[in-house]
Simulated assay, not measured.
Amino acid sequence: MPRLSCRSADPFRGSFAVARGDVTWERLRRHEFRKLRPDTYVGSATPDDLWLRVRGLAVWAGPEAVVAGPVAALAWEAECPWDDDEVVLPTSRHPGPGAPRVRRDVLAPGEVTRRWGTPITTPARTAFDLAGRAPLPDAVAAVDALAHAWRFGPDDLAALVDAHPGVRGLVQVRRVIGLMDARAESLPESRLRVGLALRGVPSPVPQYPVRLPNGRGVRLDLAWPCPGAGLRPVALEYDGPEHRTIRGHGLDLDRDAGLDDLGWDVVRVTARQMHDLDALAARVLRKLGL
């Protein structure tokens, strides 16, 4: 078996490699290798990316472990409000010291797949796990992101609820299922939608398509296209960092002018306004005549 070197891209357990004669403890302590976790190493030339994070976590946790939680969501290329590492083990065995969260659970075969050669919870099972986290708006945002990326819906999560009736936090998971919407395209959009819903605002249509008078097609973050007789349709647009550039601001002005010509009442929401959703909800309710 070839000896390990700085170009060894796949993480490995140091104690196993030393026992096989692939490397010595003295070499592992040099700059030739990088320590990822206790007894888990990789060649120093390996880029520090998400692939390495997932593979290193799996090697540290052992062959029975399944990568789960926020790091699984990130591996599935979905935004996530959290960024911690988590693994699932079928027994109470703990792999040893280290920061990752270790959760004991028995996963059904259909809830585990492989990514980058590593056992990982499926997108739907990942969403099911994250749906039980607090706070509620973040849980919905995480589920929305996975559902949007992987095209599953409330029925898929409801089936997991039925399959795991004894799991803690099912009351919140059911709430998340009732609030999720795979049409959402960003975490702030989901948080905003949920925050308003918790304050009595009727459910909007995420990413509502509109054709402007100049022929340009746009999608509104949150829209109430039919608020009632005599009222203008209402749209909420979340202004992230890209809207604060000169180009972004100019595009927003053109967009808002076109929407105004079509009769839309556009409300732009910034991160600062997200801290006072009571006032924003009251404003939207007034515009909807409620």
Results as ranks from 00 to 15, higher is better:
260 D>G: 09
31 H>Q: 12
230 G>M: 08
85 D>S: 05
290 L>H: 11
21 G>E: 12
255 R>T: 08
164 H>K: 00
272 R>M: 11
48 D>K: 03
173 V>C: 04
120 I>W: 00
6 C>N: 06
208 Y>N: 08
23 V>W: 12
282 A>W: 14
41 Y>I: 06
215 G>D: 14
28 L>E: 11
199 R>F: 15
167 V>K: 10
177 I>L: 06
32 E>T: 02
237 E>S: 08
50 L>E: 10
289 G>Q: 04
31 H>L: 06
52 L>R: 01
21 G>R: 07
262 L>K: 10
144 D>S: 07
140 V>R: 06
39 D>T: 12
228 G>N: 06
106 V>W: 15
130 L>G: 07
190 S>F: 15
103 R>F: 02
42 V>K: 00
190 S>I: 05
200 G>H: 14
146 L>H: 08
58 A>Y: 09
144 D>F: 11
74 L>V: 03
78 A>W: 12
39 D>V: 13
236 L>M: 10
275 H>R: 13
270 T>A: 07
147 A>F: 06
84 D>C: 09
145 A>M: 13
26 E>Q: 10
47 P>A: 00
29 R>W: 11
150 W>F: 09
161 V>T: 03
173 V>G: 03
66 V>D: 01
43 G>W: 10
22 D>I: 00
213 P>L: 13
11 P>N: 00
280 L>R: 00
69 G>I: 13
290 L>M: 14
139 A>S: 12
129 D>E: 15
133 R>N: 08
110 G>R: 02
20 R>F: 14
27 R>G: 02
208 Y>D: 14
230 G>R: 08
134 A>G: 07
83 D>R: 13
78 A>M: 06
76 W>G: 01
199 R>Q: 05
175 R>C: 08
177 I>G: 05
151 R>N: 13
72 A>C: 05
22 D>S: 08
176 V>Y: 03
112 V>D: 01
73 A>K: 13
151 R>K: 12
204 P>L: 08
43 G>E: 09
242 E>T: 13
161 V>W: 15
241 P>F: 12
186 S>R: 11
193 R>Q: 03
178 G>C: 04
121 T>Q: 06
91 T>Y: 15
16 F>W: 14
161 V>K: 05
223 A>D: 13
63 P>N: 07
50 L>A: 03
110 G>Q: 02
38 P>S: 07
85 D>W: 08
15 S>P: 02
4 L>T: 02
235 A>V: 04
138 D>Y: 09
92 S>P: 00
67 V>P: 00
233 P>V: 02
239 D>C: 10
78 A>K: 10
104 R>I: 01
276 D>I: 00
144 D>H: 09
84 D>W: 15
5 S>Q: 05
146 L>Q: 02
58 A>G: 09
180 M>S: 08
38 P>I: 03
277 L>N: 01
121 T>M: 08
135 P>C: 04
118 T>D: 09
239 D>G: 11
76 W>Y: 15
19 A>N: 04
41 Y>R: 09
72 A>R: 03
141 A>P: 00
111 E>H: 06
6 C>I: 09
175 R>H: 07
160 L>S: 07
258 G>S: 12
123 P>H: 04
1 M>T: 10
86 E>C: 10
